[in-house]
Design a protein around this nucleic acid. Sequence first.
DNA 1: ATAATAGGCAACCAAATGGTTGCATGTCAA
DNA 2: TTGACATGCAACCATTTGGTTGCCTATTAT
Lengths: 104, 104
Amino acid sequence: MDEVFRALADASRRALLDRLHARNGQTLGELCDGLAMTRQAVTKHLGILETANLVTTLRHGREKLHYLNPVPIHQIGERWIKKFERGKLTALSELKRQLEKRDE
Amino acid sequence: MDEVFRALADASRRALLDRLHARNGQTLGELCDGLAMTRQAVTKHLGILETANLVTTLRHGREKLHYLNPVPIHQIGERWIKKFERGKLTALSELKRQLEKRDE
DNA sequence: ATAATAGGCAACCAAATGGTTGCATGTCAA
DNA sequence: TTGACATGCAACCATTTGGTTGCCTATTAT
């Protein structure tokens, strides 16, 4: 879980996930196109996404195909974000009331 | 949005959010209790959470009260995670089919 | 066979990160 | 008013991070 959060912390990596979301199964070369980064930098980012299990790869001849794995993202939503949903409505409006309570 | 992802990347900071979720409105001192970290380290983490708008603070005399703001977390769920929900089911099972398609 | 293509590996670098220590300031209580 | 308590500020440090360059390997096409 920590590795997923870590992997998502970088905007370039989130952009790579976006690209794969738009078109799944792209090669390294395709994923590099138009990015202001060397191929090796992209390789590293994809490696981080891979160890976080957000991307799965498959060698196909000399090409490496990259596939988005949405499961960890979904899990963050289920196991983590939903925890904080409750109390969302009461949050900031309730804040002042709690403060005033403290003054008594 | 980037600042939120960045802030959530660190486990200590997520733990601080958990603590505030369990009991809102804690002071810096309270949030330090039991952590294997100096007060100053915690201060920095809270600062990062604050600039990401995940925590709101209020001075109350010599104390600084910390309140969880769940809104950015909710937004990540809405604006980001939901994008990747679609295609979740077709993901890995679909993967091989796409591959075989490529071979033709 | 050989050249072009797709990707891998490793060393290196600057900047950001997570943490520390030491000292200063503001506020409350005796 | 003086000491204790809660927090702030700044310098410093080691490690991680995001990126580079240079070279090597494997596969495909001519």
